[in-house]
Simulated assay, not measured.
Amino acid sequence: MPLEPKHTDKKLIFFKPDLESDIRIPYVSQGVSAGFPSPALDFLETSIDLNKELIENPTTTFYIKVEGHSMTDAGINDKDILIVDRSLEPADKEIAICFIDGEFTVKRLKLEKDCLYLMPENQKYQPIKVSEENNFIIWGIVTYVIKKI
Rank of each mutant, 00 (worst) to 15 (best):
I81A: 08
M71I: 09
N134V: 07
D49A: 04
E45C: 11
D22N: 07
F62D: 05
Y63R: 14
P127I: 08
E56K: 15
F136S: 11
R86S: 11
T61W: 04
F36C: 09
G68H: 01
Y27Q: 14
P17H: 08
P26G: 05
Y63S: 06
K113W: 15
C98K: 04
M119I: 02
D42F: 14
L41H: 15
S29W: 10
L82K: 01
F14P: 01
V130G: 05
V106Q: 01
P17I: 02
N57F: 11
L109T: 15
G102S: 04
A34H: 06
V130P: 02
E20G: 14
G75I: 13
A96E: 14
I95F: 00
A40F: 10
K93I: 08
N77F: 05
S38E: 06
R24G: 11
D101F: 01
A74L: 09
R24L: 12
E133D: 14
Y27W: 07
G102N: 06
Y125G: 04
K110Y: 13
P37E: 07
D42K: 08
K16F: 09
I83H: 03
C115S: 12
V28W: 03
Q30D: 08
K16M: 12
M71T: 02
M71S: 05
S131V: 07
C98Y: 03
E45H: 03
D18E: 06
Q123W: 12
G35V: 09
C115R: 10
L54D: 02
L118H: 00
G31C: 13
E56H: 14
D92T: 05
S70V: 07
E53V: 13
V130H: 01
E67K: 02
F136L: 14
D49L: 03
L44G: 14
L118S: 01
Y117Q: 02
P26Q: 06
I48K: 02
D78V: 02
D85C: 10
Y63W: 06
E94W: 10
L116G: 00
D114W: 03
G102D: 13
R24F: 09
I64R: 00
P90E: 07
A74D: 01
F104Q: 04
V130R: 01
Q126W: 12
I128H: 03
S21W: 04
V84Q: 02
I25D: 05
T46W: 10
V32T: 07
F36R: 12
L41C: 09
T60V: 10
L44Q: 11
V106T: 00
D73I: 07
S70G: 04
L54T: 11
D42L: 07
K16E: 06
P127W: 00
D80P: 03
T72S: 15
N122V: 03
D114V: 10
V130W: 00
K124G: 10
K52I: 10
E94D: 13
D114A: 12
F14A: 13
I55S: 05
A34K: 06
L116D: 00
K65Y: 04
L111A: 11
T61E: 08
F99G: 02
